[in-house]
């Protein structure tokens, strides 16, 4: 199972990376290099070993699919077991059905009210995505400001850290009072909750640039923009993507909580209705849809990460839905 051991190594590197350990990454790079390409004497060996193009073979689509299946079958099995247990408990009515409905009842509700549920799902999805995109943009801007300006670092960073202590869910009622029942308070709440991990990861990423690379950039006569674009930003991406993955799941929480406090549509609103009517099947259906939004958005960020930083240690093992 080389595929497996590689995957574990990559994961370990990813964990070290998020803990701010750049040394760990370079160490894993060093071990990787020792068994990939050895330095040939230029006078004796002119080229790389034939056929390899000097690099290990890229995983093909088929091998990636196998690796994906390999990484998914265990969690799938656990999920199936939980699902079976739910079904059994509900079908035998160990717990009354108005508390725990059977999967069949939930399915009937979902298909029966599909157009209504779809409308509410779109509302929540829109709030979440808008909140996430804004949080990502604002968070990155703040991270750049903090990483580049010592004054802003001293002025802003403590406030950002402190603001995280305020329970933002408690602000929700105030936001509704200020901005009404529409889209705005939900988006603001999503932004407030998702902003923090983006800033923290962005600052950590931008600060992790090798100081020697920055010295080098200075002797290359490049301005700050070019240095940012070519060196600092790509270097910060692994950190930043980890932060974005956390942020996207938090954005869902923000949107739903915003709907709890005051809304006329959205999955959070439906959840309150279902709860009030003791409509357990609808409640379960609603929960499933909320989770689906979170999962789909998370996977989208994962895909973006795979496209943006295929070179990074956490990505080298090929398929990974498990880096965080």
């Amino acid at each position: 199972m080389t595929e497996n051991s590689l995957d574990t190594a990559g994961r370990q590197a990813a964990v070290d990376m998020t803990e701010g350990g750049r040394a760990a990454v370079s160490a894993s790079g060093a071990t990787a290099s020792s068994d990939t390409v050895d330095a040939p004497a230029p006078s004796t060996v002119a080229g790389p070993p034939p056929g390899t193009d000097g690099r290990p073979p890229r995983p093909t689509l088929g091998r990636r699919a196998v690796a994906l299946a390999d990484s998914l079958w265990r969690p799938a099995l656990v999920l199936a077991a939980l699902f079976a247990a739910w079904w059994f408990v509900a079908a035998q009515e160990y717990v009354p059905n108005y508390l725990v409905p059977t999967p069949g009842q939930v399915w009937t509700t979902m298909t029966g009210q599909s157009s209504e549920l779809a409308r509410h799902t779109v509302v929540t999805l829109y709030e979440t995505v808008l909140g996430f995109v804004l949080a990502a943009a604002l968070g990155l801007a703040a991270a750049v400001a903090i990483a580049y300006s010592r004054t802003l670092d001293k002025a802003l960073y403590p406030i950002v850290l402190f603001a995280q202590v305020i329970p933002k869910i408690a602000i929700a009622p105030l936001l509704v009072v200020w901005f009404g029942l529409g889209l705005t308070p939900k988006v603001i709440l999503a932004v407030l909750i998702a902003f923090f991990p983006v800033v923290i990861s962005g600052v950590a990423g931008l600060r992790s640039t090798d100081p020697e690379l920055l010295d080098l950039a200075a002797t290359m006569g490049a301005g700050p923009w070019r240095t940012f674009r070519k060196i600092r930003f790509p270097n910060a991406l692994p950190h930043l993507m980890a932060g974005l993955k956390v942020a996207v799941t938090l954005a869902v929480v923000g949107a739903v909580v915003g709907e709890f406090v005051g809304a006329s549509e959205g999955l959070g609103y439906v959840l309150l209705l279902a709860n009030g009517n003791l409509d357990a099947p609808l409640l379960f259906a609603d929960l499933i849809l909320m989770s689906a939004i979170g999962i789909v958005l998370f996977v989208l960020v994962e895909i973006a990460e795979a496209l943006l930083i295929p070179w990074h240690a956490s990505r080298r093992a090929g398929v990974s839905l498990t880096t965080s």
Binding site: A32, V37, P42, G47, P48, D53, G54, R55
Partner: peptide, 19 residues
């Protein structure tokens, strides 16, 4: 410098001397 054939290799794929 004898790097021919390694043009596209990423740093982690190269030995210390090659890097």
């Amino acid at each position: 410098t004898g790097l021919t054939g390694f043009e596209k290799a990423l740093p982690h794929e190269l030995s210390g001397g090659m890097q």
